Computed example of a mutant assay.
Amino acid sequence: MKLGARALLAAGLFASATLAPSPVRAEEPTASAEAKAGARAAAENGTNAFKASRYAEAVDMFLRAEALFHAPTHVLMLARSYAALGKLVLAKEAYLSIVREELGPKAPAAFRNAKADAEKELADLSPRIPSLQVSTTPEAKHVVVTVDEKPLPAALLGIPSPIDPGTHVLRATAEGMAAPEKSVTIKEGEKAAVVLELAAVASAAPITPVRTPVGPTGPAGGREQPPGKTSPGRIAGVVLMGLGVAGLGAGGVFGGLSLAKRAEADEAFDTCGAGCWGPPADAVRALDEDANQKGTIGVIGLAAGGALTVTGVVLFVVSKGTPGKAPSKALVTPWIGPQGGGVVGRF
């Protein structure tokens, strides 16, 4: 599924979070003999990993098995692996998908047993899942709250929502305001509430172009420079090339982070599946948004870095001049904007 379709699906699932997904009959899936055999092998490896307490490996194996062939038994072991890792929210969603699944009269006995086990284990798990209510004060416009660097949907601001136990990092920003970072440790079954105190922050000072005369002026079109002294234009060129390389490096880093987040979003969506909803759908959307933000920063860094590097090279070359003579007149004006950066001037 393409990114746009996945983002649209995630948004729709979040909007209808209170609606149960359409039931799937367990005996309906059809798959090739090779797919079924591969699913059995992956499930066997997952079971061995689970018994050896290698729960992350078990999650990977059961996800692979479920991707090859759907079976409530795969999802049941996936839920147990998530629970063992402390990912209680994902474990609950996996249990729920089994409980809500419609089993036809021809469903195997193993599937029926998996559903019965899921109902019992879900009842035991639900009280263990903590909740976190995040709110901000005072009232502000365009409030953005992140939990562990993932945006908290605006609809969940100020109301309790399920969260995994452990330590979580909270941040909040608003129009002209920000709140200090706050860490909170939540235990199983705890109902936590955190208020983030927003305070006014100084706006960044506007960037003022710096008009730097590259060469001195004189009545004869130039003034003698001390022999052997490096031209100011060449110094400026070297500086701009350095800034450009730094910009290219930053752009490349953020581009790589964007690709990593995009891959993580794809993996989360594949895990979530077409019938997921609630927190897993929110997580997919948050990963997509994070990937978009990092991708935008990467593009800006590459554009600005390229412009600065090229301008620095040009300035370095044209500022060579003649020995002992500075260029008659030259003016350099660096600029940086939302879409990139560069230098304008006359030489």
Rank of each mutant, 00 (worst) to 15 (best):
V239N: 11
K150I: 05
L308V: 02
T311V: 06
P216N: 03
S22R: 09
A41N: 05
R223G: 14
T167E: 14
A84R: 15
A33H: 12
L78H: 02
E57V: 08
G255R: 05
A58E: 01
E119G: 08
I300M: 10
L78P: 02
H142V: 05
K150W: 10
L257P: 00
G166N: 08
F347N: 06
S97C: 03
D282E: 13
L132I: 04
V143G: 00
T136R: 00
V24S: 14
E264L: 10
V24W: 04
T136M: 01
V332G: 12
I159P: 02
I186C: 03
G255Q: 07
K141V: 03
G312K: 01
A43W: 00
K187Y: 04
P323N: 09
Q133M: 15
A205C: 07
M177F: 12
V99Q: 06
D164I: 00
L132P: 01
G158D: 02
G255K: 03
E149S: 15
A303G: 09
M177W: 07
G324F: 02
F14S: 13
E101C: 06
R346N: 09
Q225W: 08
A79Y: 00
P323G: 08
P226G: 11
R40Y: 13
A202M: 09
V145P: 04
K191L: 05
G233S: 06
R112G: 10
F269V: 05
G321V: 01
G221M: 09
A11K: 11
E28K: 13
S131H: 14
E119P: 06
A118P: 06
V99E: 09
T136A: 05
K115L: 02
A26S: 12
E34Y: 04
R285A: 15
V245H: 15
A174V: 04
F316S: 11
E101H: 08
G249K: 10
P160S: 10
A118H: 08
L331D: 13
F62M: 05
V169A: 14
T230S: 08
L78V: 05
F269T: 03
V89H: 00
G176P: 01
A123H: 09
V147R: 04
G166K: 04
K325Q: 13
E102F: 10
V344E: 13
A33L: 12
A154W: 10
V239Q: 14
L8P: 01
K115V: 01
Q293T: 11
Y82G: 01
V195L: 10
R100G: 15
G345Y: 06
A20K: 11
K325V: 12
L122F: 08
P327L: 11
T217L: 07
V317D: 08
G176A: 03
V147N: 02
L240P: 01
A220D: 13
A39H: 03
L170S: 00
V144R: 15
R211M: 09
